[in-house]
């Protein structure tokens, strides 16, 4: 039976199980959680928002990294990404609750190039979508799965998030609505629509609370 409360840990486990148990090669999975944003002091004036609930980043398989035409990232952009990673590392290891604008301490992970999909995943943590807009918002409001495969489908989408995903090398993006949010998956490979995945999401994410 579904648990009364879904903790971050169980969300993480479900996202991980979804990706690691799939035959297809998914790069990441994100759960966009439904919440209500109170606009001003009027409590009746609320907007349904889909914001970061949790995410699981599997990473790029070597065969994908090799065959993929790299998005030319400028040296300045790569430096910027590394600096952000270093700062976030020092924030997390320092146990603080804020990100400062100062330089973080250098370490091995902070000196390694930050891939496009890592960056896309990281930036996603700062994003949220009003119900009805953006890829997750549209999937939720229509209660329908959105399945975009092929770079043309992503590049031609009216959703900025799909176009952004294509720029970062994604070939497939999927948003599957659930009771309390939307599960989004992305892949560097073309993956065709399957009812298996949708059914799995429905069974893994059919909880209350």
């Amino acid at each position: 039976p579904p648990p009364p409360h879904v903790t971050e840990d169980t969300l993480q486990q479900r996202l991980q199980a979804l990706i690691e148990g799939a035959r297809e090669s998914w790069t990441y999975a994100v759960f966009w959680q439904l919440s209500h944003d109170f606009a001003g002091e009027d409590v009746s004036n609320t907007a349904a928002l889909l914001s970061w609930g949790d995410g699981y980043y599997k990473g790029e398989e070597e065969r994908n990294s090799r065959k993929r035409k790299p998005n030319p990232v400028s040296a300045a952009e790569q430096e910027h990404r590394k600096r952000v990673i270093r700062e976030l590392n020092s924030l997390i290891s320092g146990g603080g609750g804020t990100v400062s604008s100062g330089g973080g301490s250098s370490d091995e992970a902070g000196d390694e190039d930050v891939s496009d999909t890592e960056w896309f995943f990281l930036v996603s943590m700062t994003q949220s979508f009003v119900n009805g807009s953006g890829l997750p918002g549209r999937a939720f409001s229509s209660s329908r799965t959105i399945w975009l495969s092929g770079s043309n489908a992503l590049a031609g989408s009216s959703c900025e998030r799909a176009r952004q995903g294509q720029v970062y090398g994604l070939e497939t993006m999927v948003c599957i609505p659930t009771q309390n949010g939307v599960v989004e998956l992305g892949s560097l490979e073309i993956i065709h629509q399957s009812s298996d995945l949708v059914e799995k999401v429905n069974s893994f994410f059919s909880f209350n609370g």
Binding site: E8, Q12, Q33, W52, G53, D54, G55, Y57, G59, I85, L88, N89, L91, I92, G97, T98, V99, S100, S101, D107, E108, A109, E112, E118, F121, L122, M125, T126
Partner: peptide, 26 residues
């Protein structure tokens, strides 16, 4: 400075930890 919500902080910590593991094992 930017305050981080708890859910994102936990996700971020996991992401950075896994990234460290990937980099050091490569």
């Amino acid at each position: 400075t930017v305050a981080l919500p708890q859910a994102r902080k936990a996700s971020l910590a996991r992401f950075l930890e896994k990234r460290k593991e990937r980099v050091t094992s490569a």
